[in-house]
């Protein structure tokens, strides 16, 4: 995909944002039947549904939503590596949620204010994502400032996903966003929540050597292929099937 004009640039941006939402929605859906409590199962499924709704609008701006979701190969997906990371334990899922929903909230707030092609969706998404962020924050506080075990598991989860967070602030073509400013607001917000949860901000690089993240260029981590295989299996095995 070589971007030349504004139309192509906005397709690139729609794919990046749409794939983030689609992939994270699928990952959260994997909790169905496995969540630690019924309320939590319902919460994660509802967050997944919000993300799926956002993905449908965004992918429809880029082409046919079903074809894009079910018939693209791994290398054609433009989502962040963060969102494709396996659910891990509940702490990993919550850490991924806080990192991503804080980013998504700040990004959509800026896109909503900017008035571009993504403004109508962003204005809705920002309100939905505020609840996702709040959910992740409340769990981070409860588990971080909880027992010795829950604290340690939260600490490990935030540390494990830290190296995927730099990628969020690589500029996306077609989005008129002040990325360095977005990044510093993200860091400030995450630092504040972790501090209240008696957790420290993880050490280690978020960009450059030993960090991760080339999902926007179509380079994905090993678990992503297996996730896609499961997500696309039915559609590919039974083309044109409908309820």
């Amino acid at each position: 995909m070589t971007a030349t004009g504004p139309a192509t640039a906005s397709v690139t941006a729609a794919l990046a944002l749409g794939d983030d939402a689609l992939v994270l929605s699928h990952r959260l859906g994997e909790w169905a039947g496995h969540a630690p409590a019924l309320e939590e199962e319902v919460a994660l499924a509802n967050i997944a549904l919000d993300l799926l709704g956002q993905a449908r609008v965004l992918l429809s701006l880029a082409g046919d939503e079903d074809e894009l979701a079910y018939l693209r190969e791994e290398r054609a997906f433009r989502n962040l590596q963060l969102v494709e990371q396996p659910n891990g334990d509940f702490a990993h899922t919550i850490a991924r949620q806080l990192y991503f929903s804080t980013y998504q909230h700040l990004l959509h707030a800026e896109l909503a204010a900017g008035g571009g092609p993504f403004a109508p969706l962003a204005a809705k998404a920002v309100k939905e994502v505020a609840y996702h962020r709040d959910h992740a924050e409340q769990w981070t506080l409860r588990l971080g400032d909880g027992t010795e075990t829950s604290h340690e598991r939260m600490r490990r989860a935030y540390a494990a996903l830290w190296r995927y967070t730099g990628e969020m602030f690589q500029p996306v073509e077609g989005l008129d966003v002040d990325w360095p400013a977005l990044e510093s607001r993200w860091l400030e917000s995450v630092t504040e929540v972790l501090g209240r949860a008696t957790l420290s901000v993880p050490e280690g690089p978020r960009t450059g050597a030993w960090s991760a993240g080339a999902g926007r260029q179509g380079i994905h981590t090993e678990p992503f292929g297996r996730m896609l295989a499961e997500m696309q299996h039915l559609h590919r095995s039974h083309p044109g099937a409908s309820w």
Binding site: E40, A45, N46, K127, E128
Partner: peptide
Amino acid sequence: LSRFSSTACKALRRCLSCREPFDHFKEL
């Protein structure tokens, strides 16, 4: 009790007076 209930637009709450659980159409 939970920020998300039977649908995304509702939260699950409980009354501390009559002890009944109920849905709350949460602010959006």
